[in-house]
């Protein structure tokens, strides 16, 4: 199956800055995360796929068509930019209806879909209030609503959790993931927070300084490793000292001890040491590699 978005050797140069350099990537169906620090080129890549800016060189395709004339593609694409983009004196109901109509939906359908979508994102009660009075979380939801109101096949969300507290971020991500999985809308989500991507996306593209450093399935990166992690509630120092005495190399990471390539004998020793020291073991499991590890690895 053809990728929804694909870029081949895309380079984008602003006057004296290289925003994207020789980027080649594919965005397939499902949830894809675009991870990178601020200035890595995430927003540039998105606006390029949307046809808002032109690439300096390279080719890209949207829905398998060359990205030259975006008008056709725009009927089936939704977008929410990183920054605020909502008129403050207009109500969410009015604005979402309007955006549905601009996307080509008939008037009555636009109105009923706007109502449904605003309810879906949790803005049912507040939909007649001017959006300037909304909290950051509500604005992010309104931005999501206008991006999905015309039932697109693909939605590009640029930093949809920006400005939210951890609980708000979690709720927003759950809403996005639910919208994608239940209704089959593919999403490309950019974030500088790896936790966001890890929790919600099936595929990941990592951008660094305008180039792609990683792309693939998230599950491929979050596999179990050979490292054994022991988390303690109490007595971690005693265990660490005892294990070192018995010749097992340990490293301490917060409330956890990490042991590389533990053998069966090592496991027996560890069990005995925990019993002897009376330490309160919280968890013992092979360590899962997280996306944080990708970031710690030097870019190759």
């Amino acid at each position: 199956m053809a990728a929804l978005l694909s870029a081949r050797n895309i380079t984008k140069v602003y006057e004296d800055t290289v925003a994207l350099q020789d980027v080649t990537l594919d965005v397939e169906q499902g949830m894809t995360g675009l991870l990178g620090a601020n200035g890595a080129g995430k927003s540039t890549l998105m606006t390029l796929f949307l046809g808002i800016i032109q690439a300096t060189s390279g080719d890209f395709q949207v829905f398998g068509e060359d990205g030259g004339d975006p008008i056709q593609a725009h009927r089936l694409i939704g977008y929410s930019p990183e920054y605020e983009c909502l008129p403050p004196n207009v109500s969410a109901a009015e604005f979402t209806t309007h955006m549905a109509r601009v996307s080509g939906l008939p008037r009555t359908e636009a109105r009923s879909r706007a109502t449904d979508v605003l309810r879906h994102v949790g803005l049912d009660e507040e939909r007649y209030r001017p959006m300037g009075t909304y909290s950051t979380g509500m604005k992010q939801r309104a931005k999501l609503a206008q991006a999905i109101v015309h039932d697109p096949q693909l939605v590009l969300l640029d930093e949809p959790t920006a400005g939210l507290d951890p609980a708000g971020r979690q709720e927003m991500l759950e809403l996005i993931a639910q919208t994608s999985s239940e209704f089959g809308i593919s999403m490309l989500i950019s974030s500088h927070l790896m936790g966001d991507i890890e929790r919600t996306c099936e595929r990941i593209i990592v951008l660094e300084a305008g180039g792609v450093v990683e792309q693939g399935d998230v599950s491929g990166y979050t596999t179990d490793t050979e490292t054994l992690a022991l988390e303690f509630d109490e007595g971690i120092e005693a265990v660490a000292a005892a294990l070192t005495n018995k010749g097992i190399a340990v490293t301490t990471e917060g409330r956890a001890l990490l042991i590389e390539e533990a053998s069966q004998d090592d496991l027996d020793t560890i069990r005995d040491v925990i019993v002897e020291t009376g330490a309160l073991l919280h968890r013992l499991a092979p360590r899962t590699q997280t996306l944080s590890d990708i970031f710690r690895r030097p870019a190759s």
């Binding site: 008008i71 009927r75 009015e94 309007h98 109509r101 601009v102 996307s103 080509g104 939906l105 008939p106 359908e109 879909r113 449904d116 979508v117 309810r119 879906h120 999905i148 015309h150 039932d151 919208t179 239940e182 209704f183």
Partner: peptide, 28 residues
């Protein structure tokens, strides 16, 4: 009652419809 999100299979207009929508919004 609440239907939540639904899919849309109806007609989708092009530039003409979008133009009229922006015009109408200007009037409003």
């Amino acid at each position: 009652f609440d239907l939540g999100y639904r899919h849309y299979d109806g007609p989708r207009g092009g530039r003409g419809k979008a133009f009229m929508a922006v015009y109408d919004d200007g009037i409003r």
